[in-house]
Computed example of a mutant assay.
Amino acid sequence: MSLLRQTRIGLLELHFGVRGVKTLLLRDLQKAPLMIVRPFELPCGTLMAFIVNPTGGVMGGDHSEIRVQVDSGARVLILTQSATRVQPSPTGEAATQDISFTVQAGARLEYYPERTIPFAGSCFRQRIRVILEDGAEFGATETLAAGRVQSGERLAFGEYQSRTEIFQAGNRVFLDKQKLKPSGYTRAPGVWGQADYGASGVWVGAREMEEWPKRTGRLTTGHSAGGAVWLRAVAERGPELDADLLWASTAIRQQLFGATPLQVRR
């Protein structure tokens, strides 16, 4: 290993709970480059926190670990302040991220990070593991760009992997594995086609879906054998994807959680 090689290992541990009638951040452990902006309460009573990485992006060999616990009765929304920019990795070593969420019965956790943008020659691997008690609610989305498309780097990254696994009351209710290594198949219909942006999402709640949100040709939804609601979407432009995702997630949240639309202040 070269003595000039530098890697960064970020750690973020957050514990949310209820005191009185308010959701509060009870404990946090932060190790640079990961940190959070001080949480604040939304009009609906949900406590919102931004995860921040002040560096210019993640590089090969970097590792981030995020652990979040949400106690019964708490309502938590976690966002990221900016897109995740995955820098080129000349050695082919991956930047990695491990995320674990634990949500107690009667609590709700939602995780909606900004877009991941893999630069040419980059490699990124992510794992998300969610442990829900019976009666817990959870929602998450993931959006990915085909690269720095405005700079002509469409599908020029080395590799992108993401694995999301959700357990509720000890049973696995959702598993999603994505692995993209740009080549001929990546442009096939049903994977990317001519789209430059893709998204996935998953929600787990106690209520049933009565009306499935659909937008012909760009977005589809369904449910897993375990009852989790999933979403897939693609678009040629980022703003189109974001609008579709907001529209669909708002409808899903309303039905599964009985929740009002989020009023996020940035």
Rank of each mutant, 00 (worst) to 15 (best):
T141E: 14
I66F: 09
Q6L: 13
G170T: 08
R148M: 07
L144H: 02
V76I: 05
E93F: 02
S64Y: 15
Q126D: 04
V234N: 04
F101P: 06
K179F: 14
G258V: 07
D98S: 15
E142T: 10
V68C: 10
D176I: 03
V173E: 01
R207W: 00
V264W: 08
M35Q: 15
R148E: 05
E137L: 07
Q255T: 01
A233W: 02
V202G: 06
A248D: 09
I36D: 11
R237Q: 15
G60P: 00
A140T: 13
Q97G: 04
D244I: 04
T186P: 02
S200H: 06
E210V: 13
P33T: 14
E211P: 00
P113N: 04
F257D: 03
I36T: 15
R108T: 15
A235V: 05
M59N: 08
L256V: 01
R266G: 12
V191W: 02
Q161M: 10
A248M: 05
V21R: 12
F124C: 01
S249N: 15
F16E: 03
A156G: 07
Q178N: 12
G152I: 10
V18R: 04
E236M: 11
T80G: 09
G222R: 09
T221R: 08
A140G: 05
L24I: 13
P213N: 00
I166D: 02
L26N: 10
L262S: 01
D134P: 01
P113L: 07
A83G: 02
T91H: 02
A195N: 15
G121N: 10
K31H: 12
R127A: 11
I252R: 00
R129T: 14
L11H: 14
A195D: 13
G92M: 12
G135Q: 14
D28E: 15
G20W: 14
Q126P: 01
R218Q: 12
S89E: 11
F138M: 05
Q254H: 14
T80H: 07
V70A: 11
K22V: 10
A95K: 09
L12H: 06
A120F: 01
R215Y: 00
P261C: 02
K22R: 15
R85C: 03
T186D: 07
E153S: 10
L231S: 04
T164W: 13
C44R: 05
V234K: 02
R232Q: 07
F16S: 04
M48P: 01
E240G: 12
S100M: 06
G121I: 12
G227D: 04
D98N: 15
T164Q: 11
L79H: 01
Q81F: 08
A49D: 04
E110S: 11
L144W: 01
F50H: 15
R148P: 13
L3G: 06
I36F: 13
E110W: 08
T46H: 06
F174P: 08
G217R: 11
R27P: 00
V18D: 08
I252K: 00
A225F: 04
